[in-house]
Amino acid sequence: MTVPGPFSGLSWWTNMAMGVQVREFARKNAANVLSVANMVMGMSSILSSLNGHHHAACWLVLIGYLLDLADGAVARRLNACSALGAKLDEYADFTTFGIATALLLRTPNLLDNILCISYVLFVVVRICFFASEVPLVYHGLPCTYSSVILASASVLSEGNMAVLWVMTVATIPFMISHNSYPHDRVLESEAWKKVVYAGGVVMLFCSSFPPACVYYLLWSVSYMLFPTSLWNAEM
């Protein structure tokens, strides 16, 4: 029979305190983990592009898109918004929706490489200079949606550069415009928007079937063309 020692109660309180600290750490960093996961998807997409795995590179960008939608929702849900989280989100966006997406436009052709570099520069302009001071509103199309359009079009066209040129030239003016776009709080809004997000997750399991990208293409184009009538945030 074990006889309780004089420090058994202290040990119990220590374990309880450690448990509280672990839970608090997890609460504060859950969204940061999603941002880092988004960044990892972007870096993986970059490596896939450089190694000629075009299909995988596109789908990794789309996974990053779903993670990007989730990290803000998780941060707000857990009341864990922070300056660190905002910085991580920006770095992840630049990695996945800037560099990784631009590399989908890269070929040995000089003009295609100029387009690739130009796209990165436009994403930098979008991230740095087009923040809105109006709550729940973006100025210009978020680069996440431009990336989804390009990644989806790239899969559907099997990397046809004529198609990608048209899509890129069409989306860049939306990115650097002063049009207002609602914050895409899909997971914090009406039920049908959550169903749309769930559909995006389901499409990941159909990644070997190129028409699955039609789902993402329609989703992102609808946000680009009908931001207020369809996607205005209603909390």
Results as ranks from 00 to 15, higher is better:
Leu78Phe: 15
Val201Lys: 03
Leu121His: 12
Asn113Thr: 12
Leu110Cys: 11
Ala233Gly: 01
Leu225Val: 15
Trp231Leu: 06
Leu115Phe: 14
Tyr216Glu: 02
Tyr223Val: 11
Lys87Tyr: 09
Ser154Tyr: 06
Leu104Thr: 12
Lys193Arg: 12
Met43Ala: 15
Asp184Ala: 15
Phe174Glu: 06
Asp71Asn: 01
Val148Met: 15
Ala73Tyr: 09
Phe122Tyr: 14
Val196Ala: 04
Leu204Arg: 08
Val163Lys: 06
Ala191Cys: 14
Ala73Thr: 07
Met18Asn: 12
Leu67Val: 02
Tyr223Ile: 07
Glu90Ser: 10
Val201Thr: 05
Cys128Met: 14
Trp231Pro: 06
Tyr119Lys: 02
Glu234His: 06
Leu225Glu: 09
Pro108Ile: 08
Met39Gly: 15
Ala37Val: 01
Met18Thr: 12
Gly72Lys: 00
Val40Met: 11
Tyr65Phe: 13
Pro173His: 05
Phe226Arg: 00
Thr2Ser: 10
Ala17Pro: 01
Ala100Lys: 02
Val201Cys: 11
Leu66Glu: 01
Leu84Arg: 07
Asn109Leu: 07
Asn29Pro: 03
Met161Leu: 07
Val125Phe: 13
Asp71Phe: 00
Leu230Ser: 03
Ala191Gly: 03
Phe130Thr: 09
Gly159Ser: 02
Trp59Glu: 07
Ala37Asp: 00
Val166Cys: 14
Ser45Lys: 05
Ala162Asn: 07
His53Gly: 07
Ala162Leu: 10
Leu84Cys: 09
Glu190Ser: 14
Ser177Thr: 03
Ala37Arg: 00
Leu84His: 05
Arg23Ile: 10
Ser146Gly: 15
Arg23Trp: 09
Phe174Cys: 06
Val148Pro: 01
Ala153Phe: 06
Gly9Pro: 13
Ala70Tyr: 05
Ser147Lys: 07
Ser49Phe: 03
Gly199Asn: 09
Met39Asp: 06
Ala17Glu: 09
Asn29Glu: 13
Trp13Ala: 14
Cys206Asn: 08
Glu133Trp: 08
Pro182Cys: 09
Pro6Lys: 11
His54Gly: 10
Thr168Glu: 05
Glu24Ser: 12
Asp89Asn: 08
Arg77Tyr: 11
Ser118Tyr: 10
Trp12Val: 00
Pro173Cys: 09
Ile172Glu: 05
Asp93Ala: 12
Val196Gln: 07
Ala102Pro: 07
Ala57Leu: 13
Leu47Trp: 03
Ser118Phe: 12
Asn51Glu: 05
Leu50Ile: 15
Thr96Lys: 03
Met203Gly: 03
Ala170Phe: 09
Ala56Ser: 11
Trp165Val: 12
Phe209Val: 09
Ile127Gly: 02
Leu136Trp: 10
Asp89His: 05
Phe226Gly: 01
Ile63Asp: 05
Gly140Val: 09
Ala75Arg: 03
Leu187Ser: 04
Ile149Val: 14
Pro4Leu: 13
Ala56Lys: 08
